[in-house]
Computed example of a mutant assay.
Amino acid sequence: MSPPEILPDTADGHARAAAILRQGGLVALPTETVYGLAADATGDAAVAGIYAAKGRPGHNPLIVHVPDLAAAETLAGFPDPARALAEAFWPGPLTLVLPLKPGHGLSPRVTAGLPTVALRVPAHAAMQAVLRAAGRPLAAPSANPSGKITATTPAHVLAGLGPRIAAVLDAGPCAVGVESTILAPAPSGTRLLRDGGLSREVIEPITGPLIADTTPGAKLEAPGQMTSHYAPHAPLYLGGQPQPGEIIIGYGAVQGDLTLSPKGDLAEAARNLFSCLHTADALAAARNAPAIRVAEIPETGLGRALNDRLRRAAAPRD
């Protein structure tokens, strides 16, 4: 297989990405959160290609990206709580799980057989340009092998997926660094399905107290709910006493081989999280280290999303 095309963040690059997507190909695209592996959400074969390239289980639904609220309204119903959230936070790092409308036109593979669809309006200018040039909704989970460390740079995408995809649009590192927050709004209350780049403290003035439902039982409702996810090859531990030979990822006053944020800034830590995990995993392999250990992070604001990713990365592997 040929290596993927590297496309520039220019009008020509956006047009080339859109052309590949319209032809059913896979393109890694930047968003403000992480790089997404995009495909035409209306094409069965294109969406099947996402699952194959990532090795993603078929029961794990995908997020569909659209350019604006008007486009989202053609695919799903918007109860009043959902509309308020969309008007407040779109474009941005928020995904809403909503009931599908009849005649939506999406591939059934996108929703993994559910009567709902996860929708997002991304804020990244390059992703917006490609969405508008492609003229169709794009399914785009994170651009990395399923269950492994998320990609926040083109280099991460190439290392993880390489020739399994057609192209990568290179717009540099992502600004937020963790995936979108996922909510399921309803008149009876808003459920939080995944902590992410939009904190609870920002959301709850609109919704009231969120109902946390981030690890469901038998059936997944949204991406990022699998118990083991975001995992490096080396075992990963959170907090506790460092052991000899471990690769240490520090935070704030806790120093290490790497640091999420020397200032203890949660936004900086979010931007650095997955890059630090990629680097720590490479160091662990080079040094034959027994494990990676991450300093404790406060369970507040973006810290909840960071701790969610790290707990899943540390969970027992399937």
Rank of each mutant, 00 (worst) to 15 (best):
A184T: 14
H124V: 02
G147C: 13
A123S: 14
P185V: 03
P137N: 11
P163D: 15
R164H: 06
A166K: 08
L131S: 02
R132E: 04
A129H: 01
P173V: 05
E179P: 04
E179I: 10
M127Q: 08
G147D: 13
P137W: 05
S142A: 07
A155Y: 14
T181H: 12
P141I: 01
A167W: 03
R136V: 12
G177V: 00
A134N: 04
D170P: 08
T150P: 03
P185T: 09
G177I: 00
S142W: 10
P154N: 09
L119R: 05
S180R: 15
A167C: 11
S180L: 15
A133K: 07
A125K: 12
L158W: 05
A151T: 06
A129R: 01
L131D: 02
T152W: 04
A143K: 12
I182A: 03
A125G: 13
A159T: 15
R164C: 06
A155E: 15
A139D: 04
L183Y: 11
A175H: 13
G135L: 00
K148W: 14
Q128L: 09
A123P: 08
L119C: 12
A143Q: 13
V168D: 06
V176H: 03
H124W: 02
H156F: 12
P145F: 10
S146W: 15
T152G: 01
T181N: 14
L161I: 10
A184W: 06
I182H: 04
H124I: 01
L161Q: 06
G160S: 09
T150Y: 09
V176A: 08
H156R: 10
P154W: 03
I182N: 08
G172V: 00
V130S: 00
A125W: 14
V168W: 01
R136Y: 10
C174P: 01
V130W: 00
H156W: 11
P145R: 15
C174K: 00
L138W: 13
V178M: 09
T153C: 04
M127D: 04
V130H: 00
L161M: 06
A126H: 02
R120Q: 12
P154F: 09
A134E: 02
P173E: 08
L119I: 12
A167F: 08
I149Q: 06
S142R: 03
L138H: 08
A118V: 11
P154Q: 05
V157Q: 09
